[in-house]
Design a protein around this nucleic acid. Structure first.
Length: 477
RNA sequence: GGCGCUAUCGUCUAACGGUUAGGACGGAGCCCUCUCAAGGCUUAAAUACGGGUUCGAUUCCCGUUAGCGCUACCA
């Protein structure tokens, strides 16, 4: 049975890279008919925040992918401590009474970073005595040193990996406050939850040697591993909230007006490829196409700048997803965006407008700037010079608008009647169609760039159109 | 410093020894057109460097360089 997990630690908002890890796990589980587990890795009590936890759940909920089982490491402390104890009793770990922070850089530069011999070789009786006396200690894994050997595992992405035990330090299992470290808690839970595949960021690739040692010490099956290339900033640096700000949060994309399926699509294309040149893919297509073999090995740049936090390709993909959506469904998404922006409207109206703007918005939020004039009672002020058509003057604009007012007053207010009526009105005036349409468009929309004229008139309705044309004529006085 | 990983257009990527090195985003141009979009077409743009192996290297090996990661009683 395939079981995978996503294990975020609640020390910040849901990071774009974490979101991708979640998505890859989810896709893998769904593709293989396995189980997706969410595990909150909250062993670092000092840095955990409730706010962060909420923001992670908000982000995951927005993605809308879901999971099958949910756990919290802080509720599984006993399990972690039991494993630590078991490993200690087997002699595979030892107490290190060195006060924290005392070693670090110095030891490393002196080549003593692997372990503290005094502590590693401390006699059991003395160790027990000092522990019983209440002296604090960290519990460290006793990496085999008697003979050099290689720790090996096969990574589904990076291939066969090996590392000499001579290059693996005696890492901590328990902190001196008795709390488990990440390595211990993670492996204890992975073993207990019978995780079959660990799919996570490449920043854990070298940690995996320690984990293999731990699984073996716990006499647990070693899971399969698949490490993911990292997502990096345009300067190549690892994305971090400190350095790069909110661009690394999934909320930035949600709040900008992304469709979750488009965001998922974008993230999938960072470090994975269906190998057949497909770009826009639905969730179903992604699930169908996903495999660990399609994951590549080099880090991927998320292309953002100070001015624009959105990757241009993500933006394009979002526009593609918007375009591909049934209009009725898009209208449902647009309504809350409009209401949020303060427009008073209803789903009926939005349904009428949606087909006119569907291929003109890249973000859901664009609706507020692209379609505002459909929902506004009064047009925002515009320069009357905008009303003047190409190779024309104010007099022509006024003539056109007067004619339009007359024509529109007496025509069936539907696209198929409006077009011929306005075209023949134009030739009656001796102006080109474009010279006729532009003043009307500006009068009615308040700007030159807008959706196709006749549908726009139709949706707006006769009354508003005539009213706005009248206002435009006044402006031209 | 030690160890590990990586290296194809600006960016995301395809090409599992033989291709005019393909696609996409973004850029430029053209077409379509009532404006704006959308769409279509065209175009510029890449195998980090040096050695091997091979009839033949983007592809395999070694080195260099560069980047990244780990090296915490963070995760």
């Amino acid at each position: 049975m395939l079981r995978v997990r996503f294990a975020p630690s609640p020390t910040g908002y849901l990071h774009i890279g974490s979101a991708r890890t979640f998505i890859f796990n989810w896709l893998f589980a769904r593709h293989e008919g396995g189980t997706m587990i969410l595990r909150i890795d909250d062993t670092d009590v000092g840095r955990n925040t409730e706010e962060s936890l909420n923001s992670i759940f908000d982000g995951l909920r927005w993605l809308g992918l879901g999971w099958d089982e949910e756990y919290k490491q802080s509720e599984r402390l006993q399990l972690h401590k039991q494993l630590a104890e078991a490993i200690f009793q087997k002699g595979l770990a030892y107490r290190d009474f060195t006060p924290p922070g005392e070693e670090g850089e110095k030891a490393r530069s002196e080549g003593q970073w692997l372990f503290n011999a005094g502590m590693r070789e401390l006699a059991r009786e003395e160790s027990d005595r000092r522990a019983a006396a209440g002296e604090p200690f960290a519990l460290r894994f006793r990496v085999p040193r008697d003979r050099e050997c290689e720790v090996r595992f096969a990574d589904a992405v990076y291939g066969d990996q090996s590392k000499s035990t001579a290059d693996i330090e005696d890492f901590a299992l328990l902190r001196s406050d008795g709390m488990p470290t990440y390595h211990l808690a993670s492996c204890a839970d992975d073993a207990d939850l019978r995780i079959s595949h660990i799919v996570r960021g490449q920043d854990h690739l070298t940690n995996t040697f320690k984990h293999v040692l731990l699984f073996e010490a716990a006499r647990a099956a070693v899971p399969q591993f698949a490490h993911l290339p990292l997502l990096v900033a345009p300067d190549g640096a690892k994305l971090s909230k400190r350095r790069h700000g909110p661009v690394v949060s999934v909320m930035t994309y949600r709040d900008a007006g992304f469709l979750p399926q488009a965001y998922i699509n974008f993230l999938c294309l960072l470090g994975w490829s269906p190998k057949d040149n497909r770009e826009r893919m639905s969730r179903e297509e992604l699930t169908e196409a996903f495999s660990l073999e399609g994951i590549n090995r080099s880090n991927a740049v998320v292309n953002f700048t100070e001015e624009d936090p959105i990757d241009p390709k993500a933006l394009w993909l979002n526009s593609q997803h918007i375009y591909a959506m049934p209009a009725a469904e898009l209208a449902e998404q647009l309504l809350p965006v409009l209401r949020e922006a303060g427009f008073r409207t209803d789903i009926e109206k939005v349904r009428q407008v949606t087909p006119l703007i569907q291929e003109r918005i890249k973000l859901l939020n664009d609706v507020t700037s692209v379609a505002d004039f459909f929902f506004l009672e009064e047009l925002p002020p515009y320069d009357s010079a905008e009303l003047i058509p190409q190779k024309g003057d104010a007099a022509m604009a006024a003539a056109v608008l007067r004619q339009a007012r007359e024509t529109l007053a007496g025509v069936d207010f539907a696209h198929d009647a409006l077009e011929p009526a306005l075209r023949s009105a134009a030739s009656g005036l001796g102006v080109k169609a474009g010279q006729m349409f532009l003043p009307i468009r500006v009068a009615v929309c308040g700007r030159k760039n807008a959706p196709p004229l006749f549908q726009t008139l139709e949706v707006l309705g006769r009354e508003i159109c005539l009213h706005r044309i009248g206002q435009a004529l006044e402006k031209l006085q």
